[in-house]
Amino acid sequence: VFVDDHLLEKVLELNAKGEKRLIKTWSRRSTIVPEMVGHTIAVYNGKQHVPVYITENMVGHKLGEFAP
């Protein structure tokens, strides 16, 4: 499973602090992992960042699938 390192670091850091804030990313190719559930990730679609709230059903899919 591929997840960009910088994105995973941000998610794990927020989980350690117990925070839930918006994470901006250009990494549409990253796979959604269970650690991301409950976070809102702003995924770049080529024009703007689209906020995507991550749920359990999204695990295993790519971030780009949810930012048309």
Results as ranks from 00 to 15, higher is better:
G38P: 00
E9H: 14
V43W: 03
S30H: 03
M36T: 02
G64Q: 11
E65G: 09
G38S: 12
S30I: 03
L22V: 14
I41L: 06
G18C: 07
G64S: 09
G38M: 08
A16N: 10
L22F: 05
Y44W: 14
V1T: 09
H6S: 11
G18H: 06
A42G: 14
Y53L: 13
K47E: 08
R21E: 15
M36G: 00
V1M: 09
H6T: 14
L8Q: 02
K47W: 08
V11Q: 00
K24G: 02
G64Y: 13
K62E: 14
D5S: 15
K20T: 07
A67D: 04
H6G: 08
F66I: 08
Y44M: 06
N45T: 10
V52D: 00
E13N: 10
K10T: 15
T40C: 11
S27N: 04
S27V: 07
P68F: 09
G38Y: 08
L7I: 04
H6C: 15
P68D: 08
K17T: 12
F2H: 09
I32D: 00
L7Y: 00
N57Q: 13
Y53T: 13
E56A: 13
L8N: 02
V33F: 05
F66D: 01
M36D: 00
V50C: 10
V37W: 08
K17Q: 09
L7E: 00
S30V: 03
P34C: 11
D5H: 15
R21K: 14
E9F: 11
M36P: 00
N57H: 10
I54F: 02
D5P: 15
K24D: 04
S27E: 06
K20R: 09
L12P: 00
K10E: 15
T55M: 15
T55Q: 14
V37M: 14
L12N: 11
K62C: 11
E65M: 09
K20F: 13
I32G: 00
T31L: 05
G46C: 10
T31V: 10
E19G: 03
I54D: 00
V1P: 15
K20E: 03
F2A: 05
A42H: 05
P34N: 12
P68I: 08
L8R: 05
H61E: 10
T55I: 13
V52F: 07
R29Y: 13
G46P: 02
S27L: 05
L22A: 06
F66E: 07
P51E: 12
L22D: 05
S27Y: 04
Q48H: 14
E65C: 10
F66T: 04
W26K: 15
L63H: 01
Y44T: 05
N45A: 07
H49F: 13
Y44L: 04
K24M: 13
D4F: 02
R28H: 07
R28Y: 06
K20P: 02
V33T: 07
M36W: 01
R28L: 05
S30N: 03
L7H: 00
H39R: 01
L14G: 04
I32F: 02
D5G: 15
A16G: 07
G60L: 14
R21M: 14
K17R: 12
M58N: 10
A42M: 04
G38E: 10
G38V: 01
I41A: 02
A42Q: 04
L12K: 14
A42I: 02
T31Y: 14
V1Q: 14
R21D: 14
K20A: 05
P51R: 10
F2T: 04
L22T: 12
V59F: 13
E65F: 12
V3G: 03
K62T: 14
F66S: 05
E35M: 11
E13R: 08
V59P: 11
K47G: 07
A67G: 07
K10W: 09
A16L: 12
L63F: 07
E9K: 15
V59E: 09
A42L: 05
I54T: 04
V1C: 14
E9C: 15
I54P: 03
V43S: 02
T25G: 02
E56C: 09
S27C: 11
G46D: 07
V43C: 06
E9T: 13
N15Y: 02
L63W: 00
E65R: 13
V37E: 10
Q48M: 15
I41K: 01
L12W: 08
V37L: 13
K62D: 06
D4A: 04
R21C: 13
L14Q: 08
E65A: 09
H61M: 14
H49C: 05
D5R: 15
G46F: 09
H6R: 14
V43M: 02
K10P: 01
T40E: 05
S30R: 02
Y44R: 03
K10R: 14
E9Q: 15
P68H: 10
L7D: 01
R29H: 13
Y44I: 06
I41Q: 00
V50N: 14
F2G: 07
R28P: 04
H39K: 01
V43P: 08
Y44N: 04
F2E: 06
D5Q: 15
G46V: 05
K62I: 12
T55A: 11
E56W: 10
P34T: 12
K24Y: 15
E56K: 11
T40F: 07
F2V: 05
H6W: 15
V33Q: 05
A16V: 08
I54R: 00
G46A: 10
V43R: 00
E9I: 09
E56G: 14
L12M: 11
I32P: 00
K47Y: 11
V3N: 02
P51L: 08
K24F: 15
Y53V: 12
K10I: 14
W26D: 14
Y44P: 06
K47V: 14
I23K: 01
W26G: 11
F66R: 03
I32W: 00
L63Y: 01
K17C: 09
L7W: 01
E56L: 10
V11N: 00
L22N: 04
E35L: 13
R28Q: 05
V43I: 09
R28K: 06
H6M: 14
N15T: 04
K17L: 12
A42S: 09
G60D: 09
K20S: 04
V33P: 03
R21Q: 14
N57C: 11
N57F: 14
E65H: 10
I23A: 01
F2L: 05
A42V: 03
L8F: 10
W26A: 11
N57M: 15
E19I: 13
F2P: 04
W26M: 09
G64K: 11
G64H: 07
V3H: 04
T25R: 01
Y44F: 11
P51D: 06
N57I: 10
T25F: 01
V52G: 01
N57T: 11
A67T: 06
P68L: 09
P51V: 11
I41E: 00
V1R: 04
D4S: 05
L14P: 01
H49M: 08
V11K: 00
Q48A: 13
N45R: 08
V3I: 11
E35S: 10
L8H: 03
D4H: 05
E35V: 15
I32V: 11
N15K: 02
E19K: 07
E56M: 12
T31D: 09
V50K: 13
Y53P: 11
T55L: 15
P68Y: 07
V3W: 05
S30W: 02
S30G: 03
P51S: 07
R29F: 14
L8W: 11
K62Q: 11
V43K: 00
